[in-house]
């Protein structure tokens, strides 16, 4: 069974790499016929990775989300699911080719990460609200990842047009309006889901305050999440009021995404993700 998981993971990675190959060739030539195999490669990749993850969960009788490899796999699968619908919009389909190389890179990273042994967690960590909290959070991250990539595409496209460099590697990206719509669609979905996951998380943390300590709400991860919600709320407001739009706003969204993503990584890698940072668990 473990061999099947490994094979599925490799097949998934191969799907992403093939999709990235087609995507890069599309960005170079603009041939519309390359969009279909790109989408197909991403679908195969995502489906295989999902198969590997489900099978791993089936073997260990629990959700495999505690290890870095599993978490990254889930993020890739969800980001693929968030990105794939653009393939059905002819004017936006080329955006998929912008996503594919990064997803392929992330899938390659998962192959080289060691797969953790899944130990049986405490009963509090197996509760439905926590599973829901983590699942929805991952979906929100996937949309933010998709939005971050789209904002990068927007910045590149706007600069390309502004600087009169019509030819070049990114000349087949969708129009600015199309990118703007895709960007804000992703960010909106991510924002709604992230807000929802925060509420679910707070409810769970309140219920399990003995486990997390009485000052769980001051944990760096929680504070960072709040700042993130505030940041995106400001972005939404600025866009609605017309204070910030176009490349400037896309640039801010991109910077914000990189910053939050980076800070989350720092918290994870330095062990600061703990919930009893300011107080002891009871």
């Amino acid at each position: 069974m473990h061999n099947v998981v490994t094979i599925l993971a490799w097949v998934g990675c191969a799907g992403y790499v093939v999709a990235a190959g087609y995507a890069l060739y599309f960005l170079r030539t603009g041939r519309q016929s390359l969009l279909r195999p790109t989408a197909l490669g991403l679908f195969t990749g995502g489906f295989s990775l999902l198969g590997a993850l489900v099978l791993r969960g089936f073997i260990s009788h629990r959700l495999p989300l505690t290890g870095a490899r599993d978490a990254l796999s889930l993020l890739i699968i969800l980001a693929t699911a968030a990105a794939l619908p653009v393939a059905r919009r002819p004017r936006a389909a080329s955006l998929l080719c912008f996503h594919a190389p990064l997803l392929a890179l992330l899938s390659l990273i998962t192959i080289f990460l060691t797969s953790d042994t899944l130990a049986t967690p405490a009963h509090q960590l197996r509760s439905m609200p926590l599973i829901l909290h983590v699942g929805v959070a991952f979906l929100a991250y996937a949309f933010f990842l998709s939005g971050g990539l789209t904002s990068a595409a927007y910045v590149i496209q706007a600069r390309r047009i502004k600087s009169h460099s019509e030819a070049g590697f990114f000349q087949y990206l969708p129009s600015l309006e199309e990118l703007d719509q895709s960007l804000w669609s992703s960010i909106t979905k991510g924002y709604v889901l992230f807000t929802a996951t925060l509420f679910i998380g707070w409810a769970w943390a309140w219920a399990e305050r003995n486990l997390l300590g009485d000052k769980w709400y001051l944990a760096p991860k929680v504070l960072l999440s709040l700042v993130m919600v505030l940041f995106y709320a400001v972005c939404f407001h600025a866009r609605r009021r017309g204070w910030l739009r176009g490349p400037q706003l896309a640039y801010w969204v991109l910077m914000g995404f990189c910053l939050f993503f980076g800070l989350y990584l720092v918290l994870e890698l330095t062990g600061l993700r703990t919930y009893y940072f300011w107080g002891n668990a009871q």
Binding site: T29, G30, R91, Q157, I161, E166, A167, P174, S175, L176, E177, E178, Q181
Partner: peptide, 24 residues
């Protein structure tokens, strides 16, 4: 070959550029 790619009249180039900004 790429013999048919890229517009070669002022008006069509302008329209192509507009299409890179506006969706519809």
């Amino acid at each position: 070959s790429g013999i048919g790619t890229g517009k070669v009249s002022i008006s069509s180039v302008a329209v192509d550029l507009a299409a890179a900004i506006f969706r519809d």
